[in-house]
Computed example of a mutant assay.
Amino acid sequence: MNKKHSELIVRLRDYRTEAGLTQSGLAEAIGVTRKTINTIENGVFTPSTALALKLARHFDCRVEDLFALTD
């Protein structure tokens, strides 16, 4: 049986730049490092549920607006 693996789609950079924030500015606002924001945006690091919820709260959106899975 051949299983397809879903990939994570990350829209964090879009939301951050639309808000006029740098990676450092967003990191400071939610209490993480700039490198954390960078690695999330580049698909290197998948945020914890708590961090994804913090990001969604910051942008007043749903977690699903920031992160989604491909089919």
Rank of each mutant, 00 (worst) to 15 (best):
M1S: 15
M1L: 11
N2E: 15
N2K: 15
N2M: 13
K3R: 14
K3A: 14
K3P: 13
H5G: 10
H5Y: 08
H5A: 12
S6G: 14
S6F: 00
S6Y: 02
E7C: 02
L8R: 10
L8M: 14
I9K: 09
I9A: 04
I9Y: 10
V10C: 15
R11N: 15
R11I: 06
R11W: 07
L12Y: 11
L12A: 08
R13S: 14
R13H: 10
R13I: 12
D14P: 13
D14S: 15
D14C: 11
Y15I: 08
Y15D: 12
R16N: 05
R16K: 07
R16V: 08
T17S: 09
T17P: 07
T17N: 08
T17F: 04
T17A: 03
E18C: 07
E18R: 14
A19M: 07
A19T: 03
G20L: 08
G20Y: 01
G20P: 01
G20H: 05
T22L: 06
T22E: 03
Q23R: 13
Q23K: 11
G25T: 03
G25R: 01
L26T: 01
L26I: 03
L26Y: 01
A27W: 07
A27I: 05
E28Y: 09
E28V: 08
I30S: 02
I30A: 03
I30F: 01
G31I: 00
V32L: 00
V32M: 00
V32S: 04
T33H: 05
T33F: 01
T33C: 06
R34K: 14
R34E: 13
K35C: 10
K35G: 12
K35I: 14
K35T: 14
K35E: 15
I37S: 05
N38Y: 14
I40N: 05
I40P: 06
E41F: 07
E41S: 07
E41R: 08
E41D: 07
E41W: 09
N42V: 06
N42W: 03
N42H: 13
N42Q: 12
G43K: 02
G43S: 08
F45H: 12
T46A: 11
T46L: 00
T46I: 11
P47M: 00
P47L: 00
S48P: 02
T49V: 14
T49Y: 06
A50K: 01
A50S: 10
A50H: 01
A50Q: 06
A52Q: 01
L53N: 07
L53V: 11
K54W: 00
K54T: 01
K54N: 04
A56M: 05
A56F: 08
A56R: 05
R57E: 15
R57V: 12
R57Q: 12
R57M: 09
H58S: 07
H58R: 06
F59V: 04
F59S: 03
F59T: 05
D60V: 02
D60I: 00
C61D: 04
C61Q: 03
C61S: 07
C61L: 06
R62Y: 08
R62F: 11
R62V: 01
V63R: 06
V63A: 08
V63T: 10
V63L: 02
E64L: 09
E64N: 11
E64T: 13
D65V: 04
D65K: 09
L66M: 02
F67G: 04
F67T: 04
F67S: 01
F67P: 03
A68Q: 11
A68Y: 05
A68V: 09
L69S: 07
T70A: 07
T70K: 09
D71E: 15
D71R: 14
D71G: 14
